[in-house]
Amino acid sequence: MITPWQDRSGRFYPFKAVVFAGLLLPGVWTAIAFGLGGLGALRLNAAIHLLGIWALRFLFLSLLITPAKEILHWARLVQVRRMVGVAAFAYALAHLLFYVAEQSFDVATVADEIFFRGFLTVGLAALLGLALLAATSTDKMMKKLGGRRWRRLHRLVYAIAVVATLHYLQQLMLGEREPIVMLGLLYWLLLYRLLGVTLAQGPLGLFSVVLMSIAAAVLTALTEASLISVASGVAFGRVLVLNFSLELGIRPAWIVALPGIILACAGIAPRYQALTGMKTPSASAVRPLSRRP
């Protein structure tokens, strides 16, 4: 059994320990704020929202591990992927438990609501999917299923991410930023994978990552404008041009473009070092695998 702070060979792996602590942090913060009255007038409600949003963030983070590994040439990053995915499930489960608590543990009402309210049905579907992946995430299950079948099963995570984002978007208030940002990041994650298996037939180059990030941002802007214009009847173009003003703050599309571009810039360093054959300490930190026998 490997603890959350050990690497595969059983040695203490500080990076993994930090990620583990980071995964616990939002939960601990929520629990403390809940207990001390920091969550406002409807603390159950606030906790539901916080746990749900962190579940989605961690789910996306688990999907970002492979692209980040490829862009940063950081193979050991994969060692935290399972932990991040299981954390997403844990937060989603807590999200549901707090909903049940908010309904005063009235299971009949909960079942009724999940059946009749579309967005709750969708949310439960995502949670069940995550439960399946969490249950099959152990080494034992991996061996039992066999690598090929296991990988195929765990590709389900992309569908789950789509369903979970839909669950979030179904409660969108027009003009609200974060749900649209999450949708845009989902575009980015899906595009990266899609292009990787089609056009690039392997990891994308840095320039492609930048272009793809811009494409994801444009797609986000178009989706946002469509949603608002369909829901309210205002002109599509009028919402779209908002992206070029600060009238209503920084628009989601810009936030969506950012992480991919930053990641691509960070990816220059390991490539440059590989090219020049430099072995600086930072290079070994970026590619620890190459150091190991």
């Binding site: 009402t109 009724d112 609501e113 309210r117 579309g118 967005f119 409660q171």
Partner: peptide, 9 residues
């Protein structure tokens, strides 16, 4: 359409 009104918090 999106939630029950049977209860209030």
């Amino acid at each position: 359409p999106r939630w029950s009104q049977a209860w209030e918090r």
